[in-house]
């Protein structure tokens, strides 16, 4: 089955996972910049990370014939240090012309603090000035509702941002309408323990329809499953969904959003 993995942190996955993705039918993998599990100590650490995302990781994926794309930012978990965040945002433009960079992401909020919000606004301004797509991370658990509202308001208040060029990720049942009603895309993250199970993701598709929705594994160094998207497609099949709507959700939809960046091409 043909699908796109629109959100995976492959730098923290083993090479075997590239083999599994390819064998499952993955046509492209997209990797937002994220938190390494520890705070980087300087802007130089981010420079190296952006080189890894734009130089090394595409080569690793290419060994399996898999196109690799990425998004750049400083993750909200490291946004409390405003000075570091400003330094990192300053170097991002040097990388924006690289052939696998799709836009700015995954920006957003973590604990909904004032500094996180300030850094979010700086990222949104960066994206607007450079006409970049935006991929947004929403906070975890009890912080998600408030964070999603704050993020939506920042994006809506910047009139340079076109909502159809924004995907807000990790939506759940209490936030999906906030995102879709604002005209933005919504991402459903399929995690074994938090965020969204395959069954709940399909419930949301059935309830809200498939427009402006995608699914991703967001696999990283934590408990996560790089094959979550094809497994969810299989569950849709078990529920009686026809092949065409399944392909729309797992392939056509992410391709449609990502093709707004001219650099997104499938081999």
């Amino acid at each position: 089955m043909k699908y796109i993995e629109p959100h995976a942190h492959m730098v923290s996955r083993v090479t075997d996972d590239y083999l599994k993705l390819t064998m499952a039918g993955c046509q492209a993998v997209c990797e937002p910049a994220f938190w390494a599990g520890f705070d980087r100590s300087s802007v130089a650490g981010f420079y190296d990370y952006f080189c890894q995302l734009t130089e090394h990781e595409p080569k690793r994926a290419a060994k399996f014939g898999l196109p690799h794309f990425c998004w750049l930012c400083i993750n909200p978990k490291e946004s409390e240090d405003l000075k570091l965040a400003e330094e990192v945002i300053e170097i991002i433009p040097k990388f924006l012309d690289r052939p696998n960079v799709l836009g700015i992401g995954e920006i957003g909020l973590n604990k909904n603090s004032r500094n996180e919000l300030k850094v979010l606004e700086l990222h949104v301004d960066l994206a607007a000035r450079h006409d970049q797509l935006i991929l947004v991370h929403t906070p975890h658990l009890e912080d998600k509702l408030k964070g999603t509202r704050l993020i939506r308001d920042v994006l809506k208040n910047d009139k340079r941002i076109r909502p159809e060029r924004v995907i807000i990720d990790h939506v759940e049942e209490h936030t999906i309408e906030l995102v879709l009603d604002a005209g933005m895309w919504a991402g459903m993250t399929l995690y074994p323990e938090s965020k969204c199970t395959p069954a709940r993701a399909i419930d949301m598709v059935e309830r809200y329809g498939p427009e402006r929705l995608w699914m991703n594994s967001a696999c990283d160094w934590g408990i996560s499953d790089p094959l979550a998207v094809p497994k969810t497609a299989l569950e849709m099949k078990k529920r009686g969904h026809a092949p065409e709507p399944i392909e729309k959700l797992v392939f056509q939809n992410p391709a449609g959003f990502l093709r707004q960046c001219a650099k997104f091409r499938l081999s």
């Binding site: 978990k77 909904n112 603090s113 004032r114 500094n115 009890e142 509702l145 408030k146």
Partner: peptide
């Protein structure tokens, strides 16, 4: 389970959410 407030907090003192 959600925080119903609307104002940003002064500063993040932890990275984790507790549920």
């Amino acid at each position: 389970f959600s925080d119903p407030t609307t104002d940003p907090i002064a500063a993040a003192t932890t990275k984790a959410a507790c549920g």
